[in-house]
Design a binder for these strands. Sequence first.
DNA 1: TATTGTTATACTCTATAACTATA
DNA 2: TATAGTTATAGAGTATAACAATA
Lengths: 158, 158
Amino acid sequence: MSAQDELPLALRAAYLTLHRLSDARFAEFGVTADQFVLLATLARGQALTQRELAVRMTSDPSTVRAMLVLLEKSQLVKRDTHPTDARARTVCLTAAGRRVFQQLWKAGDSLRASMIQSLQPGEAELLVDFLRRLSSSLNSERLTEDPPTINTAVEVRT
Amino acid sequence: MSAQDELPLALRAAYLTLHRLSDARFAEFGVTADQFVLLATLARGQALTQRELAVRMTSDPSTVRAMLVLLEKSQLVKRDTHPTDARARTVCLTAAGRRVFQQLWKAGDSLRASMIQSLQPGEAELLVDFLRRLSSSLNSERLTEDPPTINTAVEVRT
DNA sequence: TATTGTTATACTCTATAACTATA
DNA sequence: TATAGTTATAGAGTATAACAATA
């Protein structure tokens, strides 16, 4: 088993473990791990459109919409019409949303700390860098999915 | 933004990107990314019990069961009673399951390659190592969740 | 024409709790 | 008593396609 073969499963195992523990931590606030990510994304980039939110969360507009409906119901988020684009809606945290987010951030503290403690100084930065490179490499894979493979060589040769 | 704060989101982005691309690759075979993981787990450890399967997949017995029901319906997997423990059931790939798995593995080839190509020689091994350490650190976090904090010191002091 | 968002719909994964059968 | 698995149930995220309104 080479690193190439193990990497996907190792990535999956690490993420799912984090995801489950996060869910457990946030449960008492009635918020899921994914909803936390949405709140965190809003917390650092106010007044995003739903589309922009989906991109930043590595998610899908219709998924984001479903999540927003739930979060609006629990009053953590509100949506307004976009100031210049009447099609779009901007999303932002409510006062309660900001307050809950701070509590959630604190509740997740020991998880983030536990992740860091498993690494040597400097390794966390390296790990983040690896993950970023990996994501963007995969993303460009998506763009070049099935190129029609035009055989230009033949034409050149004539 | 420190590495500690960014690590969870970077991990999530990398995993979700991989997960979506995998789903897209496997769709033509009627298999999801998670089902692929189950098949892969069976492929390298035949005749596992459902419980063991759940552990190795970083999943849940009832989730695994739901997946097995689907995979049994598409004839990729079969379940037999355990030879020595009548409560348990062993799961293994059918002949069709092994055949499809090989095709899936090939279909995922370029994704794995793309991940590796984004890294320098040796970095893949390092990344896998980081992810493993991170998982086990988080797992031990789970065990020590809310210890009742028994104050034995008082008793010792008397 | 292209884009933003909504709606409807369906599927998969997830997880808890109560249950049966067996160890 | 503890464990393996099943069942019922519920909820959350995911994704596609058709649609309306707007750019």
